[in-house]
Design a protein around this nucleic acid. Structure first.
Lengths: 226, 226
DNA sequence: CAAAAAAATTGATAACAATCAATATTCTAT
DNA sequence: ATAGAATATTGATTGTTATCAATTTTTTTG
């Protein structure tokens, strides 16, 4: 983490503009003078499981992971990319963080204090409603994870993650995995050895190609139906 | 489901009074004339996975389960008792229900239409904030479930459920399980056979006693540390 | 650049938990 | 009250996935 700076222009922020029609200019000005831009380097921790919730956190650039720290292994609940809040679901509870957040590629975050943020949403019902929807969407996502982790086997879970990267994140059959093998396994809630083994199996069958972190999906349909 | 009736007095409803200080009387009157009291019998379905979200649902009496319907087995994500909303997290999304809700003991529900409910929260920021907090709490709960299901073994999961009933639900070492063995296993995300096997094991070791659905925790500390 | 550390890979083994199967018990409805 | 259905129980077996171990490759850092 380095160089927290004041925002100089929320109105032109490509991400915050999503909320422009929910907030009058006067409120955006208030947000601008109350938020802080902070740079994080890959690997740095933004939020540590068990710590106090003091800030609303918005990812302006880069990508972060939300994960649960277990005894030996972690589980990555989701990746959050630029243009999204992260950790919103803890902002409205008098509880400590029950998960950690760290940075998987150099990132820029926008932070506002919890009290300030709550004040803003209470005074702007459309924005408030949007925030409620976002928390709901997070809940929905976690429900899906429960299905994913408990009703599917490791192979299917890994395939789902690969297809998600291809279909939704990079929108390309070829992409650079922004995760280590260990992180990939944490995202699938399985052991790293099995992750590697399955990737090798797919490669041997020429369903995908792997060069380090570069993955190419060669036979999309076969992968999808494996 | 039977006999939907108009509410006759929200102000004296022991549950809704939790929100009294967040809503002016005029709004409570509006809620009263816009909500419907519905009785459900044990086993009946309130919400079917995949169906449209049209109502805000509040459990006035009884108990319901929220569960994910998988291919062969279900997973119960949570039990919701009297005095709580259920399914709130779907009310603010333009998505269908991604889970089902059904009744595990005869229950009385209070239902308001989605649009009406959203209108109410948008006009009452304290109540709105409370609803946001409740959705957040739900998210928090589901996160815990991910840990529970993925970092703990079946034995520990079953123990956790038994202790939760003893400590938090019935606040007694002896209680009548409101679930079948199959439902208990779905709450622990494990097979029914293993659930029964483990219960039998605990009984044989005289850690608990079982007579049908009546469970008595005989050696609390040993159970807790098993 | 070299040494050390971290990450990735592969094989062998073990543990956990699901499934299958058979039977017993309890509940439900006529 | 009784038949049929649903639920519960126990044992045997199988399959999946984690763990352990050993090695290779890549990355980091002094």
């Amino acid at each position: 983490m380095s160089n927290p700076t004041k925002s100089n222009n929320c109105k032109n922020c490509p991400y915050i503009s999503k909320f422009k029609n929910m907030l009058p200019n006067s409120e955006i000005n208030k947000i601008q003078s109350n938020c802080m831009i902070v740079n994080f380097k890959k690997g740095e921790t933004i939020v540590k499981q068990g710590s106090d919730v003091t800030e609303a956190i918005y990812v302006l650039d880069g990508q972060v992971k939300v994960f649960l720290e277990g005894n030996k292994k972690n589980i990555i609940v989701k990746l959050v990319r630029a243009g999204n809040y992260v950790g919103l679901q803890s902002l409205f509870l008098n509880e400590r963080y029950y998960y950690s957040i760290s940075v998987i590629e150099d990132s820029v975050l926008c932070m506002s204090s919890k009290d300030f943020f709550i004040d803003i949403i209470k005074k702007n019902s459309d924005f408030h409603f949007e925030i409620t929807s976002l928390v709901s969407k997070c809940t929905s996502h976690v429900f899906q994870k429960i299905i994913e982790f408990n009703q599917k086997q490791v192979k299917e879970r890994l395939i789902d993650v690969l297809l998600d990267f291809s279909d939704n994140v990079f929108k390309s059959k070829e992409f650079i995995l922004p995760l280590t093998r260990k992180e990939l396994s944490e995202l699938c809630a399985m052991s790293m050895e099995n992750t590697v083994r399955l990737l090798s199996e797919f490669k041997k069958k020429k369903i995908i190609n792997i060069e380090g972190k570069k993955i190419t999906i060669l036979q999309y349909d076969i992968l999808k139906n494996s």
